[in-house]
């Protein structure tokens, strides 16, 4: 990993679906650079042969019987929709 991180903050913001002002972009880039420098502590250890851990208490293949069971009713699922139309979530137009 390079010592100076030079993160392309606007690219990352696009991936994260966040609009940033110029001020925010500069501030976050500097702060994240500082945090990444600290995170570089991880490079001081040889981790090559270590198995990664995703969950501390691994539970595998959680399945249930394929039977119908109650879930959220349509009205409940739509109850917090910012905008709805014809019992569906409404979003801005996506095709011309």
């Amino acid at each position: 990993m390079p010592a100076a991180h030079q993160i392309d903050i606007n690219h990352v913001a696009r991936l994260a679906r966040l609009t940033l002002t110029e001020d925010e972009a500069a501030r976050y880039a500097a702060q994240i650079d500082g945090i990444l420098s600290y995170i570089d502590t991880l490079t001081r250890y040889d981790l090559g042969s270590v198995e990664p851990t995703a969950h501390a208490m691994p539970v595998y293949d959680v399945i249930r019987a394929d039977e119908a069971r109650p879930g959220l009713a349509q009205e409940q699922a739509l109850s917090n929709a910012p905008k709805r139309s014809a019992d569906q979530f409404q979003i801005p137009k996506v095709i011309e």
Partner: peptide, 30 residues
């Protein structure tokens, strides 16, 4: 929240995933 979303997006992004995310999962094992 924005700061952490940006940091998290960065460490998962193409080219950095192994260097940060997998490395951290290995450190978690230790």
């Amino acid at each position: 929240v924005k700061r952490r979303i940006l940091l998290g997006t960065y460490v998962l992004s193409s080219g950095y995933y192994d260097a940060y995310y997998i490395r951290a999962q290995k450190a978690r094992t230790l």
